[in-house]
Amino acid sequence: MHPTSLDLNQIEPTPQVANWLRMRASQWLTTAQKDFNEALFARDGSEASFDRYADARSELDSAEAWALRVAELVAHAR
C-alpha cells in the first residue's frame, strides 16, 4: 500500500496507528532519498537520466510532504 493512498483525515491516530505511520513515513523517505541519490549521481546528460532524476526528485518531494503531514497528525493527537 502506497502511503498516498491513505487519507490521513480519516485515520484515528491511536498509538499503534501513529507508530505505523511514522514507520511508513521513514521507510518511504529512506527509499526516496536512496533513489534520488542514485539518480543524481547517475546523470550522464541523457534524456533518460534526466527523466529518472526528475521522477526521483518528485518522489522525494512527495515523501517529505507526506512525512510532514504524518508529523502534524501525530503531534495533534497527543
Rank of each mutant, 00 (worst) to 15 (best):
P3R: 14
S5Q: 15
S5G: 14
L6I: 08
L6S: 00
D7M: 02
D7C: 05
L8R: 05
N9Y: 10
N9Q: 09
Q10F: 04
E12A: 12
E12G: 09
T14M: 03
T14R: 07
P15I: 00
Q16P: 00
Q16D: 05
Q16W: 11
N19P: 03
N19M: 12
L21E: 00
L21A: 02
R22H: 05
M23F: 10
S26A: 11
S26M: 14
S26I: 08
Q27W: 09
Q27T: 11
W28Q: 08
L29H: 08
T31C: 07
A32D: 08
A32M: 01
Q33A: 10
K34P: 14
D35G: 02
D35N: 10
F36I: 01
A39F: 00
F41Q: 14
A42V: 07
A42I: 04
A42E: 12
R43D: 03
R43P: 08
R43W: 07
G45P: 05
G45A: 02
G45K: 04
E47T: 12
A48E: 13
A48K: 04
S49R: 03
S49T: 09
F50Q: 13
D51S: 11
D51M: 08
R52L: 07
R52N: 11
Y53D: 05
A54L: 12
D55C: 09
D55S: 14
D55I: 06
A56D: 03
A56W: 00
S58K: 15
E59I: 11
E59C: 04
E59R: 14
L60I: 00
S62M: 13
A63N: 01
A63E: 01
A63F: 02
E64D: 10
A65P: 00
W66Q: 09
A67T: 07
L68V: 15
R69K: 14
R69P: 01
A71L: 07
A71P: 12
A71G: 01
E72V: 05
A75R: 14
A75P: 00
A75M: 08
H76I: 11
H76W: 10
